[in-house]
Nucleic acid binder design. Structure first.
Length: 279
DNA sequence: CTTTCGTCCTGACTGC
DNA sequence: TGCAGTCAGGACGAAA
């Protein structure tokens, strides 16, 4: 499931292949993903040159030479595959792009939680999908002060607060679990109680876990493929995520007495944590 | 207003 | 072996 580091990796892969290139062929193979495709998307993309590709939260922003921006979200199962002469579309290939130097770029999304939208570059930040996003966790605006301010009035668990894209933009279930583990903060803590001292510990840890994952080229558990189209998944080692019952990497005592990593459900999502190390 | 919960979707996995 | 049921999850929108 692509989170910020995976989206960053995809952006970098797409940028290498697409920036400066003209989209010579565009094919849209169904009317919608989570939402309908933009009106006349094929016509609006065909013949356009890609200027830059950037990321905001988990959105891929493809800037075109007519000052339009294609907004892409990978959702849960979305992936981009890149290659030369990829042949007939695979199952769930929904959008096919070809560049003037012969690269094929395909958006594949089995579960169709992803989306595409288009808007003008000048009004990009006020687009409904982007307008209420909080600070980038790797940006200068994200600090213990801004995080504390965002958490101060929240009575929801810190786990839920960190998944709230208005608090900080781009964290998903995996990296919230991992960051809380590294910070030694229980996911069940009321968000407001994390403001202050704990937020000072949390901010660098969030940056650290994301930076490591980006450096590793993204990570996955199931169905993520790097933008380069390379075969295989990058297997990232998580401390707690999806490790229910396994030994917590920080606890040296016998797992039979600790129970290892616990799984609980918060807001209908699995949370993994170590009750001994996270308070 | 804030917070929670249902919804979209398919494939991987579990258990009978 | 086959098949029904469960689960996964981002983000929106409805409900509380």
């Amino acid at each position: 499931m692509p989170e910020l580091p995976e989206v960053e990796t995809v952006c970098r892969g797409l940028a290498m292949k697409m920036e400066g290139r003209v989209l010579t062929r565009v094919e849209q193979r169904r009317p919608n993903l989570r939402i309908p495709f933009p009106d006349r998307m094929v016509e609006r993309l065909t013949g356009r040159r890609v200027v830059t590709i950037r990321r905001r939260a988990k959105y891929i922003l493809i800037h075109l030479d007519d000052d339009q921006v294609l907004i892409v979200h990978l959702g849960m199962s979305g992936r981009m595959t890149i290659g030369q002469d990829l042949g007939p579309p695979a199952a769930h290939d929904h959008v096919l792009l070809t560049t003037d130097d012969g690269s094929d770029i395909r958006f594949n999304d089995a579960r169709r939680f992803g989306l595409m939208a288009m808007t003008g570059a000048d009004i990009l930040d006020s687009h409904p999908l982007l307008a209420s996003l909080g600070p980038e966790p790797l940006g200068n605006e994200f600090s213990a002060e801004t995080l504390s301010r965002a958490l101060k009035a929240k009575i929801t668990p810190i786990k839920s607060a960190l998944l709230d894209q208005t608090v900080v933009a781009g964290l998903g279930n995996i990296y919230v679990c991992e960051a809380l583990f590294r910070a030694g903060i229980s996911p069940t803590r009321i968000a407001a109680t994390v403001a202050g001292r704990d937020a000072e510990r949390l901010v660098p840890v969030i940056r650290e876990v994301l930076t490591e994952a980006i450096a590793a080229g993204g990570s996955t558990l199931r169905d993520y493929v790097q933008a380069s189209g390379e075969l295989g998944y990058f297997q990232h080692s998580f401390s707690v995520y999806d490790r229910e019952g396994q030994a917590c990497p920080g606890c040296t005592c016998d797992i039979s007495s600790t129970g290892g990593v616990q799984r609980i459900v918060q807001a209908n999502r699995s949370t993994f944590y170590c009750p001994r190390r996270q308070r």
